[in-house]
């Protein structure tokens, strides 16, 4: 069972729609039993960092997710805010992140450039692959994805970075640490590129 974790934030329907399109059934849920039995997890999210952590906490999901992800090594994909919640902390808030990956979430600073860079960063962006993550196997040429974010992730260990992109400066747009994967962009909104990435997550992990 694939579970899209419903913690009250974000556009969950479109992830389920895309999974259905590429041939996978999924459930949108915060139910502990369902999450416990999941073979794959997706943590989406649109919104603020502290709100995200608070909502996970209120639903009693943090210990359960720690067990599933860190002990049972269930593959999990964080999307957008979901990815950021995997880090230690964010400049957007004061709450501690899940700390599954040694990284921090940092605010884009557009004041240091002459050119105007609107925040949020909203739009299509090319990505560069680092290493050889199975998440990106047989990806189409010149892959591009749809981004919407005002904060970005900076990994401490560069070998955990699997994708980088450029807006104001280079930033980490994808990471992988064993079963823990995160992408800053929205694969569910990125045409064939997103379908390929989600298919890889479903079949290679």
């Amino acid at each position: 069972m694939i579970v899209i974790i419903d913690y009250g934030l974000g556009n969950l329907g479109s992830i389920k729609n895309m999974l259905r399109k590429i041939g996978f059934d999924s459930e949108i849920s915060a139910d502990h039993n369902l999450i416990q039995s999941a073979t794959k997890l997706i943590l989406p999210g649109v919104g603020a960092f502290d709100q995200g952590m608070k909502n996970l906490e209120e639903r009693g999901l943090i210990p359960l997710l720690n067990k599933k992800v860190l002990e049972e090594k269930t593959p999990i994909l964080g999307i957008c805010l979901g990815m950021q919640l995997f880090t230690n902390k964010s400049e957007e808030g004061t709450l501690k992140g899940l700390s599954w990956i040694d990284a921090e979430t940092i605010k884009f600073d557009s004041t240091k450039t002459d050119k105007k860079f609107p925040i949020p960063h909203m739009g299509w962006e090319y990505v560069s692959e680092k290493g050889n993550s199975p998440l990106l196997q047989d990806m189409y040429e010149e892959p591009k994805f749809y981004f919407v974010h005002s904060y970005y992730v900076k990994c401490k260990n560069s070998d955990e970075v699997i994708l980088t992109s450029d807006y104001i400066h280079e930033f980490d747009s994808g990471f992988q640490k064993e079963n823990i994967l995160g992408v800053q962009f929205h694969p569910e909104k990125s045409h064939k590129y997103g379908m390929k990435l989600l298919t890889n997550f479903m079949t290679n992990f």
Binding site: S14, N17, E188, K189
Partner: peptide, 9 residues
């Protein structure tokens, strides 16, 4: 639309 289109809407 949302069930068939995988782009920003």
């Amino acid at each position: 639309v949302a069930e068939e289109c995988f782009m920003p809407l």
